[in-house]
Each structure stands twice: as structure tokens, then as C-alpha cells.
Simulated assay, not measured.
Amino acid sequence: MACGKTFRFFHSSFSSLRSSLFPSSLHRYPSAAQSFSSAARSTAVEHVVLFKFRDFADQFKIDAVMSGVRSLMSLDVVAHITAGPVLSHRSAAAGFTHLLHGRYRSKDDLAAYSAHPAHVAVVEELGRPILEDILAVDWVADLDGPMAPPPGSAMRLTLAKPKEGAESELKEMLAKAKASALASAPTVGTQVSFGENFSPVRAKGYGVGLLAVFPSLEELDAMDAREKNRVDSLEEKFKPLLESSIVLDFVVPPPSTDDL
């Protein structure tokens, strides 16, 4: 069962869709943020991996894994990929400290990435010797804005593990929440995607993913400030459907000279 605090963060992600992320009066960000939202609507396959490294793993080896992952952006089948340390945990995240976020134009592209020798080399030669655990989810999402969030973008990831038999109802409720949000004027530069996981092998039962991407960490913090102490009926609607959830924040790192 999800604890109350964990669920509130899950609920806050969706109440923000109807209020902070999509206010009745259009909030304006700086021109750099406006360029973030200038791309046309597209369909993307979201790929999120959470990493837990062994206690003995030194930082140099961990950084090498993250750099190796980011170097995979050179593959033609990859539309976007980033990786780095989790900024903050807003729920019990089972010790996961690092995150990979990738986007692909199709499931076939994701499959080609997974099987590519360069990806296999990163996993087998760099990651496997120091990895204790991973959790991975994949879903298909309709995006407003670019496939590749620019460096400095702040992400809030929510993974939900529905109770047995509640998957369809939870997905339907999430679709209605997003539809309600999209009926209002969108916040410039904010991107939201959610969907049902289609790769159960490494998902540990987490069947639904939600990713909210903000132009900057300041905008994410501002959303939190607006949502503080907010009470919404969605909390009571979602709570009976969830076994547990993971909520964490991540900032897209700048390109590094160490990345290939």
C-alpha cells in the first residue's frame, strides 16, 4: 500500500495538470523556454530506467556508466537520451540513485537500440559489474514540443503500481485528467506524457508512467509552491487503485566533454 505522503506527490502531479501546469491565464516564460515548446505534436516511445549501484562502486565507474549511456545519442534510432543522478526523491524509491530517460520514434527503434552492440557494451562492460538493481518502464505518449528536452530542463517522474485488477480503471482516470488539463491553455514550455507500460519484465509491477518536463528547476519549484497544501478530490479517487508509487525529480545535465 502506498503511504499517504507518497500518494500526495502522485496526486500532486495530476492536480498540477489542471491548475499549475495549465492555468486559466497563460503564463509566459523567457524566450529560451518558448523555443522548448515550439516543436509540433509528435508520438514518442518513452524509455525510463532507474539504477541502483552496489555499495562498493566508486563514483568514477558510476560516472563512466552515465557517460556511456549519453554517448548512445549518436545512434540513428535514438531521438533523445540523457542520464545522470536523481535530484531528489519524493517517495520511497528503493535506493535508486540514477536515471536514464530516452525517447524513440517507434517501438522498433527502441528494440534496435536495446540490441545495438554499442548499447550492449555499455550494459555489459560498464554497468553490469557495479549494478545492484534496475527498474525500467516503457510507454507510448503523444507529445507537444520537442523530442529532446534541452539541458537544464527539470523532470518529475511518477511511476504507479496499480492494484491487481485496477489497471484499466487507473489508465482511464489518467486519460480523463490529461484531457481536462488540455482543455485549458497550456503553460508555455511544459510537456506532459503518460501511458501504460508495455515492457513488464524489468518494471517490478509498475504499470503506469507519468513524466512532466519543465523548462527549468525554478519552474518545477514554482509549481510545488503553488500546489502546497492543495486538497483535491483526485487523491481519494486514485488512492484505492494504487499499491505503491515512485516519484522523483531529475535535471537534464549539460553536454560533457567526457561524453563520446
Rank of each mutant, 00 (worst) to 15 (best):
Y104A: 07
R105D: 14
G4L: 11
G207D: 09
P30M: 06
F56R: 11
L87P: 00
L26H: 13
D142G: 14
M66F: 05
A179T: 08
S24C: 11
V86H: 00
S199Q: 12
V65D: 01
A222E: 10
H47Y: 14
M223A: 07
M1K: 11
L182A: 11
S233P: 09
A93L: 05
G209I: 01
L234S: 10
E46G: 04
G165F: 09
L234T: 05
R54N: 15
F10T: 14
E227V: 02
A166E: 12
A92T: 10
F60V: 12
L242P: 08
V213P: 06
R8P: 01
G84V: 02
G145P: 07
T97M: 06
P30V: 10
F22H: 13
P129N: 09
D142N: 14
Y104L: 01
V86R: 04
R156F: 00
S91T: 01
L241S: 08
M73S: 15
V120F: 01
G102W: 03
A44K: 11
A183W: 01
I130L: 08
F238Y: 13
V69D: 04
K52E: 13
L260T: 02
D138Q: 11
S91G: 03
L50N: 04
V69Y: 13
R156V: 07
S114F: 02
L21F: 05
